[in-house]
């Protein structure tokens, strides 16, 4: 019985991830996941497994369901620009903390392209992992490789930017203030609109330690080490709290 329960939970979770990363509406996704949960729960009482019910590979079954559900372009049109602008805002703030207000055109365009590649990669990975039975190790390796790719590309971009001359954009004082203010406003706006703290907490945790330590007369190296430690500690606590909360929600549903 416990094995069936575990199999059901895993299947439903994977189905949810698969449909959402296939661009299906959240509402419709929850509806079909809820309906299948009801069915699988009833079937479980008669000792039937997920495999007995779907009668084919999970991937084939998920594809069949997804094939009947319309693609939600509205979601894509809202979220992709939102995430992009959010990341640009973060970039502006990140540079502002370091006191840098000039951007090379190559870097600015490259950042956007790499961000798009990274987003695409995440979606493809989630879909793939949710629909195929992979070991935890290969799952981890895939996500590791997936998150490493944009970082490698960013490093490559930095070197390319040094080697190639591209037009520079310099911001004057008024534009600096405006850019920082707009970036902050936008990140707060995302937080309010999407009802999430992520867009405030992550920039705050990663930027504020450096900003505060810059005011002290501390040495450069110890400043870097200390601000990194504070950032990671903060992120760790934040992720722990979010994880705990999600766990609680999940046990309430099932």
């Amino acid at each position: 019985m416990a094995a069936l329960l575990k199999e059901r939970r895993e299947f439903l979770q994977n189905l949810r991830i698969y449909l959402l990363s296939s661009g299906k509406k959240e509402e419709e996704t929850e509806e079909i996941v809820g309906e299948l949960e009801d069915h699988l729960y009833e079937a479980e009482k008669h000792g039937k497994s997920v495999q007995d019910i779907i009668g084919q590979s999970p991937k084939a079954y998920m594809e069949q369901l997804a094939g009947e559900m319309p693609f939600d372009y509205k979601n894509l049109l809202i979220y992709v620009p939102l995430i992009l602008i959010g990341l640009i805002c973060y970039n502006i703030l990140n540079k502002a903390v370091e006191g840098v207000f000039s951007y090379s055109l190559l870097e600015a365009v490259g950042d956007i392209v790499i961000t798009l590649i990274g987003l695409g990669l995440i979606i493809v990975l989630f879909k793939y992992v949710a629909s195929s039975k992979l070991s935890k190790i290969s799952e981890g390796l895939l996500f590791y490789g997936g998150s490493l790719t944009p970082i490698i590309l960013l490093v490559a971009l930095t070197y390319l930017d040094r080697a190639v001359d591209s037009p520079m954009i310099h911001l004057g004082l008024v534009w600096r203030i405006l850019a920082v203010a707009l970036a902050c406003l936008f990140l707060i706006g995302i937080a309010i609109w999407a009802k999430t703290w992520v867009s405030i907490i992550i920039p705050f945790l990663s930027l504020s330690p450096e900003l505060v330590l810059n005011q002290t007369g501390m040495q450069e190296t110890s400043k870097t080490v200390l601000s990194t430690v504070i950032t990671f500690l903060g992120l760790g606590i934040y992720i722990f709290i979010v994880f705990k909360r999600e766990r609680k929600k999940e046990t309430k549903i099932l």
């Binding site: 079909i32 079937a43 009668g55 369901l65 009947e68």
Partner: peptide, 16 residues
């Protein structure tokens, strides 16, 4: 002759 789960993609289409 059909698996139980195969009614759901059909039901989605019938509602559509």
């Amino acid at each position: 002759m059909v698996s139980e789960g195969s009614i759901y993609p059909l039901l989605i289409r019938m509602r559509k």
